[in-house]
Amino acid sequence: MPKEFGVLTIGDAMITMNPKTTGPLRYVDQFERKVGGAEMNFAIGCARLGLKSRWISRLGKDEFGKVIYNFARGEGIDVSAVEFIEGIPTSLNFKEIHASGAGKTYYYRNPSPIVELKEEDISEEMLDGIDVVHLTGVYLAIAEKNLLIAQKIIKLAKQKGILISFDPNIRLKLWSIEKARQAYETVFPEVDILLTGLDEIQMISGKQTIEELVEYVENFGIRDFVIKDGEKGSKLFRSGRWTESPGFAVTPIDTVGAGDGFDAGYIYGILNELNEEDLLRFANGVGALVTTVTGDNEGLPYLEEVQDFVSNKKVVER
């Protein structure tokens, strides 16, 4: 029987209001209620790929909080470390989508219920059965104390030999690049897998050329330096060499969540010991499929769908 791999992530989740029409938000008057959030998307992506997915969070004790909780459970996510909080409403965001598939997000999450999560709430038992802990810069940006909580999780994970993956996922609406850089460079020495966009790592490091970026990342001892570059594909620097994989030709409808999907695909590939080329191709495939469906996580594919897509297998529809 194949081994069941476990992943753990921590972060906010939100009710996402998806516009029914494209264009500036001021002209949109109809929305669909969905569930979103970077860490939530990652947890769903992992669960759909067959990984055991555990999520640490706090939700408002309100109807929207119940929607998110039930949705996560329905996706097979372990919500044993999720609690409801009185007095702080569940976070919201409204999406603006342009005809090209690009867009903006407007957040209503200050304060977020997750600010009630405390360092003492994190226990060693939360990491039982976990093979990878995935953290993002979004969680770190919500409150200053979240860095201490993340550090506690990292410490417990390292004691158990658990890999740490990190996606900066910069949100400059939540904090400045200076504060972000300080927090990231605090956790980087413990990170095994860095999953970032080219513009993000350039912004964080203050470096521009690939050579400078490699030197910056190597100074922290990061094993896998992964650059996500959207439709152009991705590249991985490991053991002194680059591996590149082109993107897939799809028509994007909504690009939100594609990076989270890539992360889930990459972690699946790491745990299943795919070689570098197959690892990137698989992760690219997950990210590409996400863009073909409107919504933060509606397009996150199941394992068989990704396998068929990346192998160009024709699907019999009728």
Rank of each mutant, 00 (worst) to 15 (best):
F237V: 00
M14W: 04
G221N: 11
V315G: 10
R171S: 10
L213K: 09
S245M: 03
T243W: 03
E119M: 07
F225D: 08
D128H: 03
F84D: 00
V217H: 03
K95D: 04
G37W: 08
D199N: 13
F248A: 05
G257I: 09
G50Y: 06
G74S: 10
I153T: 10
G45R: 08
F220R: 05
N169S: 08
Y108L: 06
R54A: 12
L303A: 08
L59D: 05
R26T: 01
G101P: 12
D296K: 06
T90F: 15
L148S: 15
N93Q: 08
G11M: 09
G74L: 10
L236P: 06
K207I: 02
V306T: 15
E273W: 01
L194K: 10
P113D: 06
E124P: 00
V217Q: 01
P89S: 11
Q151L: 15
L25W: 04
L51W: 07
I222V: 13
N312F: 13
A150S: 15
P89Q: 08
A102R: 14
I97N: 10
E218P: 00
N312C: 11
K20W: 00
T21Y: 08
S91I: 02
E277L: 09
A283G: 03
E185P: 02
L147E: 15
V214W: 05
N169A: 03
V7C: 12
D229S: 13
D167F: 01
E276Q: 14
R26S: 14
A288M: 11
P19R: 08
E298Q: 11
Y216R: 02
W175R: 02
R281M: 12
A47W: 14
